[in-house]
Nucleic acid binder design. Structure first.
Lengths: 298, 298
DNA sequence: CATATGATATTCATTTTCGAATGGACAATC
DNA sequence: GATTGTCCATTCGAAAATGAATATCATATG
C-alpha cells in the first residue's frame, strides 16, 4: 500500500479533464492522441493519489462522481491557462485576445461599470468580458473570476489588491416623497422619515449607529437585499435612499437630501490573482478599471 | 524538421515554471524531486515545440528570455489552478489513514508536542504525522501544512482558527549561575544579570520595555535565534532565560527566578484550511492538539 | 435470440523516459 | 593560483509508460 500524498501529475489532470468532457476513455484517447489503456491508467493513478473515486465506471463509459465534479472547474482553469500559454508561445506578439471574468457588486456593475466597459470594448475589442454581478463576498476566490471589484479590502494571500479610492455616499429622495413627508433639515430629523435599507447587509445600520442614531434593522420600513431595487424604490418615491454621490447626482428623478450628512465613504478595492495579474488580458482590464474609476472616487 | 506543435506537455510546463523560479535546472530538479537531466530535457522539448528559446543558458544557470518572461504568468496561473484542485481534493479526502502535516514553532515542537503526538499515535496509529518545526511565519499556507500552531493570530480568509489559550512565561536560571551572580530579588535588579535573548525576534525586548525596563537588543550578552539553543544555554548556567512555565517547572536543571515577574503570556492559536479542517484525519489531529494542549494553557 | 456496436479491463513487447555517473566550465574563496 | 562549490551537457543501463491486440461486458437492434 503506497499512500503517497505527492502532488498531482499535471498530465493526469489533463487526462481527467478529457475523460470528464468526453465521458469515455476511448473518446478522450482519440481527442488527446493517446490510447485508451493509457487514459485508464492516468485516471486510476489520479484516483489513487487522491484516494477517492473520481468516476463511476460503467460499460457505457465514465461518469464523474461528486468529487470529480468538484474538481472539474479547477482542471478547466488549468487548461484555460495552458491554452493562453500556447497562444502566447505560438504567436509571440500575442496580444490580449480571450475572455476576462470580472466580478463586482451588483450596484457597481449596474451603475458604474457600463461606460467603463464600453470604453474598454472600444479600445480592446479582442477582449471578451464576462461580468459577474454578485454581492456575496466569497465568490471571487480560486478562479471564479480574474478580477474582482470589492467594497472592502480582500485579505488573501496570492492576491494583488489595490485601493482605488473611496466612493462618497449621499442621501437622496424623489421630490414627490419630499413634498409628501417634508424635507429633513437636520440629520436627526431623519428618524421621522422612511429610510430604505438593505436587508441582510448591516452596514447601513452600523453607519447610522456611528452617526449617533440608535436604530435597529426593524426601524427601516422598507428592506431589500438588492441594492438596485433599493435605489429604484428611492427614485420612485418610496423614501429616502442612500446612494453613491456619482449615481445620485446623475439621476434626474431624485434630489439630494441633507448634503452634509455624516455618511461614510465606501472604499473600492480591485483584486486579481497574483498569478494572472500580469497576463496581457488581465492587465489591460485592470488598467481600464483603475483609470475609469479614478474620476469617480475621491 | 519542424515537429508540429501538437500541444504543450503540461509536465513540461511545470518544469518550465520550476526552472523559471529557481533559475537553474539543478535547483528545479531538487524542488520537483526529479533529476537535472530530466529537467533539461523538458525545457529543451518545450523549446522545440514552440520553436523559440525560452531560456538563455549560462554556466551559472538558466535565465528567461523575453518570450519566456511572457509565458511565465500563464504557467503560474496553471499552477494556481493545480493547487486549487489539490486543495479541493484534499478537502474531500474521506480516508482516515494517511499523513497529516503539522507545523509549529521549534520550541513548541520540541517541548510541548512530543507527549501529545505520542498519545495521538497511540489512539490513531493509522495517521502519519509530518512535523515541520519552523519559526518562519509564512510557510503554512497553500498546503505546506494541514495544521499550524502559532503564537499569534493568523489573519487569513479561508482559514479556521481557534485560540487555545495562553502559555504563561517565567524566568529561570541554573543554580550554578545564581550562586555565581546572585539571585535578583526585584525585577529591576535583572538589569545586572545576564539575560539570554532571542536574536532577531524582538518580542523579548518589547516585553522588557512594556515592563518598564529600557533595554535594547545589545544589552543581552547572549543572543541566539534558536529558542531551543537559548533554553539549553539557560539550563547550562549561561544566565537567566525565559521559558514557558510548563517547561521551566519540569526542568530539573533550573530553578524559577522572580516568580512574580511581569511577563506576558504567549497566545496559542491553532489553524487549518477551511477546506480541509473537517476531513477525518485533520479533524482527529485538531482534536488531539486542542485536548492535549488544554491543560498547558491557562 | 443472435448479432453488432461501443465501451472498459488486461497483457505484453516496444518505446520512451528517467536518473546516476561523469566531464567540463565558471565563480568565489582562501 | 589552487581549491571548492555549483552549474550544465552527455552517456548509458534501468525503469516506466505506452499502445496494439485481446478478452469481456452491456446494450441496442433486427
Amino acid at each position: 500500500m503506497d499512500n503517497r500524498p505527492s502532488s498531482l501529475d499535471w498530465t493526469h489532470i489533463r487526462a481527467f479533464l478529457a475523460v470528464a468532457e468526453t465521458g469515455s476513455l476511448s473518446a478522450a484517447a482519440r481527442a488527446l492522441g493517446l490510447s485508451q489503456p493509457t487514459l485508464g491508467r492516468h485516471i486510476r493513478a489520479l484516483e489513487e493519489t487522491t484516494g477517492n473515486a473520481l468516476f463511476t465506471r460503467s460499460p457505457r463509459g465514465f461518469d464523474l462522481t461528486d468529487l470529480g465534479l468538484a474538481l472539474r472547474p479547477q482542471a478547466e482553469a488549468m487548461r484555460a491557462a495552458a491554452q493562453a500559454m500556447e497562444l502566447a508561445a505560438a504567436g509571440r506578439d500575442t496580444r490580449t485576445a480571450g475572455p476576462v471574468r470580472l466580478t463586482a457588486s451588483v450596484y457597481v456593475a449596474v451603475y458604474l461599470l457600463p461606460p467603463i466597459l464600453a470604453r474598454l470594448r472600444q479600445d480592446h475589442p479582442e477582449i471578451e468580458i464576462e461580468l459577474v454581478p454578485s454581492d456575496r463576498s466569497e465568490n471571487l476566490l480560486f478562479h471564479e473570476a480574474d478580477i474582482a471589484l470589492r467594497m472592502y479590502r480582500p485579505e488573501q494571500l496570492e492576491m494583488v489588491t489595490r485601493h482605488l479610492g473611496d466612493l462618497p455616499l449621499g442621501l437622496y429622495a424623489a421630490p414627490g416623497y419630499l413634498s409628501r413627508k417634508g424635507t429633513p433639515q437636520d440629520f436627526t430629523e431623519i428618524l421621522d422619515h422612511d429610510v430604505i435599507g438593505y436587508d441582510r447587509d448591516d452596514r447601513i445600520v452600523r453607519g447610522f449607529r456611528a452617526a449617533g442614531l440608535d436604530v435597529t434593522r426593524d426601524w427601516f420600513p422598507i428592506r431589500c437585499d438588492d441594492q438596485v431595487a433599493c435605489w429604484e424604490m428611492t427614485c420612485a418615491g418610496c423614501g429616502i435612499g442612500i446612494a453613491q454621490r456619482v449615481v445620485g447626482e446623475a439621476e434626474p428623478r431624485v434630489v439630494p437630501v441633507l448634503p452634509g450628512a455624516p455618511l461614510p465613504a465606501l472604499p473600492v478595492w480591485i483584486t486579481a490573482h497574483a498569478a494572472t495579474r500580469h497576463t496581457p488580458r488581465v492587465a489591460a482590464v485592470w488598467q481600464a478599471l483603475t483609470t475609469g474609476l479614478a474620476p469617480l472616487v475621491s
